[in-house]
């Protein structure tokens, strides 16, 4: 067990009845990083987090937090948690919810400071049950950070947030990382991982398909996109052997290729009127779709 990892899942297996949720999963979180866990529904993201939080035990393999069992409350005093589904007491006011969670930690922020950091000060005296879905998520975020944890687990933190609230949350996450905290984030939003993550793991069927920096994941997918205005027809271009796929979009041609340079040469030679050429690497979204599809998820 390497204590350099804040959270460490090694060869973790977990079955629910006949369903394999985790199939020998390895995940390691290093100090000071924002680590995004991506994957389609049922990939095992939430199960992986549950093992690291000590909510469930792996059938095989190990789950460690700060080199120790996550089931020890001492270990968990160094983490903050925001879960996907948690119906908090609707009768308690926002400040009270945050105060309650703060009481679990040795050196917490004041509820006021946590609310200021998460832009929820205006909600302080509102009963939790009267908040909108997005406001509830913001309050849960305040509860996750109030203990000044070294490691934050955020399960789909921005689901239900409007664009502005999401941007504010991102800014706070960056500040927390700059201040030395580490963050594990599961998300459906690829742009969230792209915008925030130092490292990404793509999960499918309870295994890690790929992990690395956003750029590394992206480069696993060699395909490029050429977007151009041309007099050539879709059928002509699609027939070229180097072209994987071609579609016409509003009198422009969108061509997916493995070798952009050779297709570009051929385009330029075939069409003297070729205009507005753009070549783009696949984004994380394309990489994600491709990685998970190749594994027939």
């Amino acid at each position: 067990m390497d204590n350099a990892y804040l959270a460490d899942l090694s060869g973790a297996k977990k079955k629910f009845g006949s369903i394999v949720a985790l199939d020998g999963l390895d995940l390691q979180v290093r100090p000071g990083e924002l680590f995004a866990v991506l994957g389609p529904n049922g990939a095992g993201k939430t199960t992986a987090i549950s093992l690291l939080l000590g909510l469930q035990q792996p059938d095989a393999g190990t789950a460690r937090l700060f080199g120790k069992s996550p089931q020890l409350v001492e270990t968990r005093r160094q983490i903050g948690v925001m879960m996907q589904e948690a119906a908090l007491a609707p009768e308690l006011r926002v400040r009270e919810q945050i105060d309650l969670v703060a009481s679990y930690y040795p050196v917490p922020l004041t509820p006021e400071a946590a609310m200021e950091l998460t832009h929820t000060t205006a909600l302080a005296d509102r009963p939790y049950g009267k908040l909108s879905g997005g406001q509830k998520r913001q309050v849960q975020f305040a509860m996750a950070i109030v203990g000044q944890p070294k490691l934050l687990f955020l399960d789909e933190p921005t689901v239900g947030l409007d664009v502005q609230a999401r941007e504010l949350l991102w800014v706070t996450l960056r500040k927390l990382v700059n201040n030395g905290a580490s963050i594990v984030l599961t998300t459906h939003y690829l742009e969230e991982a792209e915008a925030l993550a130092d490292r990404v793991a793509v999960l499918a069927k309870g295994r890690v398909l790929a992990s690395g920096t956003v750029n590394e994941i992206r480069s696993l997918v060699v395909r490029k996109r050429i977007n151009c205005s041309t007099t050539l027809t879709v059928e002509e271009v699609a027939a070229w052997p180097e072209v994987e796929n071609a579609t016409a979009v509003k009198q422009r041609l969108l061509i997916t290729v493995n070798n952009a340079e050779s297709v570009l040469r051929r385009l330029l030679a075939a069409d003297q009127n070729l205009r507005e050429v753009e070549v783009r690497s696949a984004g994380l979204a394309e990489a994600f779709v491709e990685l998970t599809q190749e594994n027939k998820v």
Binding site: F66, S103, V107, L117
Partner: peptide
């Protein structure tokens, strides 16, 4: 925001008895 954050994160997972009792009290209070 950065002004509100302390310079270093709490380095201890140890809970003083007083705070532990406070955790019980706060839970019961709410």
């Amino acid at each position: 925001i950065s002004a509100q954050l302390p310079n270093q994160l709490a380095d201890s997972a140890v809970m003083p008895t007083k705070r532990l009792l406070r955790a019980y009290f706060t839970e019961a209070k709410y």
